[in-house]
Design a protein around this nucleic acid. Structure first.
Length: 274
DNA sequence: CATGTTTCCTGACAGC
DNA sequence: TGCTGTCAGGAAACAT
C-alpha cells in the first residue's frame, strides 16, 4: 500500500516524465463515483492544463497545473491524487493494453497517457483551487523534534493509532508506523501521551530514518505497489517486523507478535519493544 | 474535540 | 475444480 516513501517515489518519477506536458483530453470511468470532486469538474480543470510540477504532500500526489484558458485570469490549480491501498498512476503509451480497473486516463500532448488504475477503489481524485494544497497534517520528514513531541501531548490513544492519524502526521501508514516503533524500541500499545520526551525523540529519529531509507530503495512493494514506470520497490526486504509474525526478531530471535490496533494489523517484538 | 466503529471494495486465500 | 466465506486496509462518515 502506498505510504510516504512509495508516493514520494511515484511523484518523483511522474515529475521527471510528465513535467511540462499538457493534458489534451481526459477520460473518466463511469462506474459509481469513486471521486472526491465530480467527474465533470475534474475533467474541466484538467483539460488543456499544463503540468508545471508533480510533488508529494503526505500520501497525496499533487499535480500543479497552469491552465492556459485565461477565462478568469488565474490558472493556479491542482490535481490531487490519493492512491488509497491499491491505486497506481502510470505513464504509458496509448497502445499499452488497458488494465482492468482503469478509472481515469489523461492523454498528453507528448503522445503518452497518464493512467489511474485502482482495483480496490479506495483511491480518490480531486481538483482544487487552493494555491498550496497542504494536506491534513504535519510532514514527518521536516517536523522538528519539539513539534513532533507536541503532536502527541495529552493523547490517550495508542502511539500506533496516533502515528496513523493523518491529521497529526500525514504520510505514515501501517508499514512505517510498525517499523519506526520497532527501531525506537517502543510498544505499539503504549499510550501516546505517556511516552517520555526521550522516547519521542527516539521515535522522531527512527521515523525519519526509516522513511529516508525506504525512499532510497524506491519504497516497499507488498501488495501491488509499483512506481510511475511500473517498477517495484525494494524496501520490503528491509522490514524488521511488518508482516513477520512468528518469525524470529532480527535482533534477539524472539518471535514477532501481531495484534490489532486502530483496526490494523500491528507487528512488534515483545522483547525489544517496551 | 477525541476516540472508537462501521463502511466502502476486490483479490487472495482457506475450507469444503 | 469451483464455490462460498472471511479478511485486509486508508480514510471518511457516523456514533459515543
Amino acid at each position: 500500500m502506498p505510504e510516504l516513501p512509495e508516493v514520494e517515489t511515484i511523484a518523483r518519477g511522474l515529475d521527471k516524465r510528465v513535467r511540462g506536458d499538457v493534458i489534451e483530453s481526459v477520460w473518466l470511468g463511469k462506474h459509481r463515483e469513486p471521486l472526491k470532486s465530480s467527474a465533470p469538474e475534474i475533467a474541466a480543470v484538467l483539460r488543456g492544463a499544463r503540468i508545471s510540477q508533480v510533488r508529494r504532500v503526505g500520501k497525496h500526489i499533487v499535480f500543479d497545473l497552469e491552465s492556459k484558458s485565461s477565462r478568469n485570469g488565474r490558472g493556479q490549480r491542482q490535481w490531487i491524487v490519493h492512491l488509497g491501498m491499491t491505486g497506481q498512476m502510470l505513464v504509458t503509451s496509448p497502445e499499452a493494453e488497458l488494465q482492468k480497473h482503469t478509472h481515469a486516463i489523461a492523454s498528453l500532448s507528448s503522445g503518452r497517457e497518464l493512467r489511474f488504475v485502482d482495483a480496490r477503489r479506495f483511491g480518490r481524485l480531486s481538483v482544487t483551487n487552493e494555491q498550496g494544497f497542504a494536506g491534513p497534517g504535519t510532514e514527518p520528514l521536516t517536523v522538528t523534534a519539539d513539534d513532533f513531541a507536541k503532536l502527541f501531548h495529552g493523547r490517550k490513544t495508542s502511539i500506533k493509532a496516533a502515528l496513523l492519524n493523518q491529521k497529526l502526521l500525514h504520510g505514515v501508514g501501517n508499514i512505517y508506523a510498525d517499523e519506526s516503533l520497532f527501531r525506537a524500541g517502543i510498544r505499539p500499545r503504549r499510550q501516546a501521551g505517556r511516552l517520555t520526551r526521550v522516547e519521542l525523540d527516539r521515535l522522531h529519529a527512527s521515523l525519519k530514518e526509516v522513511l529516508k531509507e525506504a525512499i532510497k530503495l524506491g519504497g516497499s512493494s507488498v501488495s501491488d505497489y509499483v512506481d510511475a514506470e511500473g517498477r517495484a520497490g525494494f524496501f520490503q526486504l528491509q522490514h524488521r517486523v511488518y508482516l513477520r509474525t512468528g518469525q524470529p526478531c532480527l535482533v534477539c530471535k524472539t518471535p514477532i507478535k501481531r495484534l490489532v490496533l486502530g483496526g490494523r494489523g500491528t507487528h512488534y517484538c515483545p522483547q525489544c519493544q517496551s
